[in-house]
């Protein structure tokens, strides 16, 4: 029971991180029908920017842990969002009318470019988050000891997801995003500036992805410039699991995938941990390509 609960909470924390990244994929896919391969790398930028800001500004020393981390989160969100917007401008906007393959290749190119920029700046080795700035408290929840960081990550990711959901469902801008995802042409006729919607999506998605990167840094303590693609692929799996283009789907898919992976690693085989997500991906595309909550995707020919 003890191990089960540990794995469950661990799975939820990792799943929350997947879900935050998956939201970026799913929103971009919803509006542009493009797999933003560089999204995973924006997530890595979040982790590296977080590390640099944390160590160079000594935020937690000056402002205390809670406020320091909050400021850090906001700074990372802002910076990665700007990167996302630049990416959209440079790599995707010129290809808006091109065939899909061109955009896919450009996205891959952007991914390789971003990854290697990081490598040239920080070097190829693993970077370590400072051990002393973060509290190592474990919470006593009804007799189970769970690290504080894990609880915070679950809470923060769920909070952000709820905020995003309300934003998409309840505001005018959110309605514009939903409209553009359903039919760009019709949305344009209704007076929606689709370019602004796309820009917004490329601000929101990377902001969440950047925070997810920061969370990975804080949770595991070490980061690498190539980690974006593994997390990206898993988050994309999560998005498909929930139904691509579907925002609640990405949240459910992310949490579910995190738990499946944690359980699989604990009870089946740790060596196959990284393959579990891909098995889930292939299985879901064969059995239910629309995802758990999603739209129809596969053309049956």
């Amino acid at each position: 029971m003890e191990e089960f609960l540990q794995q469950l909470t661990n799975g939820l924390a990792v799943g929350g991180i997947y879900a935050l990244i998956a939201l970026g994929y799913t929103m971009v896919y919803g509006v542009l029908k493009l797999i933003n391969f560089a999204h995973g790398d924006l997530f890595t930028y979040g982790a590296y920017l977080g590390l640099t800001l944390l160590t160079s500004l000594a935020l937690t020393d000056r402002l205390g842990f809670a406020l320091g981390v909050l400021v850090l989160v906001l700074m990372v969100m802002g910076l990665v969002a700007v990167l996302g917007a630049i990416l959209e401008r440079a790599a995707y906007r010129p290809l808006r009318e091109s065939p899909r393959l061109s955009a896919v290749v450009s996205a891959l190119g952007a991914s390789i470019f971003l990854q290697n920029t990081l490598m040239l700046i920080y070097g190829a080795r693993f970077q370590v988050y400072p051990d002393d700035v973060l509290p190592h408290t474990t919470l006593d929840l009804f007799g189970f000891y769970i690290p504080l960081m894990r609880v915070l990550i679950v809470l923060a990711s769920v909070l952000m997801m709820i905020a995003l959901y309300l934003f998409i469902q309840k505001t005018r801008i959110g309605a514009a995003i939903r409209a553009a995802a359903i039919d760009q042409g019709a949305a344009r006729l209704m007076g929606i500036d689709v370019n602004r919607v796309i820009l917004l999506v490329f601000l929101l998605g990377p902001a969440l992805g950047g925070v997810a990167g920061l969370m990975v840094g804080l949770y595991y303590g070490q980061i690498n410039f190539t980690m974006g693609w593994v997390y990206g692929m898993k988050a994309f799996t999560a998005a498909i699991l929930g139904g691509i283009g579907n925002i609640p789907g990405a949240m459910v898919g992310g949490l579910l995938l995190g738990v499946i992976e944690a359980m699989g690693a604990a009870y089946l085989s740790i060596a196959w941990k990284d393959a579990i997500a891909f098995f889930v991906l292939i299985l879901i595309l064969i059995v239910r390509p629309t995802g758990l909550l999603g739209e129809r995707v596969a053309d049956k020919i």
Partner: peptide
């Protein structure tokens, strides 16, 4: 056989997944 009917970029993702599974299988 089971995935070839998928739309373009879904096929792309599945084949990436297959590639990774094979690599992990070899490592294991």
């Amino acid at each position: 056989r089971p995935v070839v009917h998928l739309r373009g970029d879904y096929l792309l993702i599945v084949t990436i997944g297959v590639g990774e599974i094979v690599r992990i299988a070899l490592v294991n």
